[in-house]
Simulated scan of single mutants.
Amino acid sequence: MLNAIKRWISGDQPGNDWGDVINWAQKQGFGFKRAKDEEGFVLDGSVGGRPWRLEWGPPQRSYIQGHELRLRMELQLPSTLQMLIMTRSLMEALERETFERYTESNQTLIDVSTPEEMRWLAMFPKVNYDIPKAVRSHYAGVAADPASAANWVDHEFGQQMASAAAGLLREQPPFVLMTLRGRVYMRMQLDAPAPDALQQAVALFQTAAAGAIRCASSVSDSQTGDWPTTASTAWQTDIMPEDTKR
């Protein structure tokens, strides 16, 4: 709000009209809305009749600098289907941060204000994905049920992960993909939301969503056991206009 007032007083116009993004979104059949304060935008799309949302703007996680790209989709997955994939460099950084935070403070319990992706690293076992070694070295993951998470990454999903490792995620920016509370979420650091980057991100996200649906078809709450359900922080703060919140 303060930035918008300053621009209004000075007569300055927003620095980016998102023309390339708008043109690309229209061609894809996606809805486009600007964020408040002109600091980002929202895209709405659907796949298989299921709506998804993309947001780009200021980061909601301390491990992301600059700008953040976020996607989410309601899939009505089993509540205990808790799976996480992230760039290996981010996992190593978060593990160090978590260790230092709790050893230096002598805490014995993980604070519930800590994001799920950090808590899960301490709570859940790691997953071995059936993907090429070169791709596997780029990613790491944990899950309440490692077998279900391993099934999540099928051939098609693995190919998308390989493509992202060679393109969108080549430099290993902070990147998280997770299933939580029946939804699939993705977030990553992305300073330049060019159409080709958004295209890669949406393709990876949609493939992950399809894989989660397939994975859930063979999983029930009773099968996955009584794994703890953590508090909601995966979409902690909406930066978008009131009419875009759900």
Rank of each mutant, 00 (worst) to 15 (best):
S46W: 04
S46I: 07
V42C: 08
W56P: 02
I64G: 03
D37H: 12
S62L: 01
F41P: 04
A35P: 05
V47H: 10
P59D: 03
I64N: 00
V47G: 07
Q60N: 09
D44S: 12
Y63G: 04
S62E: 04
L43C: 05
G45D: 01
G49W: 01
V47C: 12
E39P: 06
K36R: 15
E55F: 02
W52C: 00
E38S: 15
W52D: 10
V47K: 10
Q65C: 04
W52T: 09
K36M: 15
Q60W: 05
Q60C: 11
W56H: 03
R50C: 02
R34Q: 15
G48A: 07
P51N: 03
E38I: 08
L54K: 07
S62I: 04
R50E: 02
G40S: 10
P51T: 09
D44A: 06
A35Q: 13
P59G: 07
D44M: 03
D37C: 12
K36T: 14
V47T: 12
G49V: 05
F41C: 01
E38V: 12
Y63C: 09
G48Y: 08
S46L: 10
P51D: 02
L54V: 06
Q65R: 06
R53Y: 00
R34N: 14
Q65I: 07
G49E: 01
V42G: 06
P59W: 00
F41M: 10
G40C: 08
P51V: 04
V42T: 13
E38D: 15
G48I: 02
L54G: 04
E39I: 13
Y63I: 04
K36L: 14
S62N: 10
P58C: 06
R50V: 11
G57M: 07
I64T: 02
G49T: 06
G57K: 01
A35H: 13
G40Y: 07
P51G: 00
L43K: 00
V47A: 12
W52S: 08
K36I: 13
V47E: 13
L54A: 02
F41E: 05
Q60D: 08
V47Y: 08
W52F: 02
L43F: 02
G48M: 07
L54D: 01
S62M: 03
A35W: 10
F41A: 00
E38L: 09
K36V: 13
P58V: 05
L54H: 01
S46R: 03
S46D: 08
S46K: 08
W52K: 03
R53E: 04
F41L: 08
G48V: 07
G57R: 04
R61Q: 00
Q60E: 05
W56M: 03
S62R: 06
E39Q: 15
D44E: 13
D44G: 07
G57I: 04
E39D: 13
G49A: 04
I64A: 01
E38R: 12
P58E: 06
L43S: 11
G40Q: 09
R34C: 15
Q60I: 11
R34I: 13
L54S: 02
R53D: 08
R53V: 02
G40N: 09
P59R: 10
G45R: 09
R61T: 08
Q65A: 05
V47I: 12
D37E: 15
G45L: 03
G57A: 00
E38P: 12
I64C: 06
G49Q: 00
W52Y: 02
V42D: 13
I64Y: 05
E39F: 13
R61W: 05
G45I: 11
P51A: 09
Q60L: 12
P58W: 10
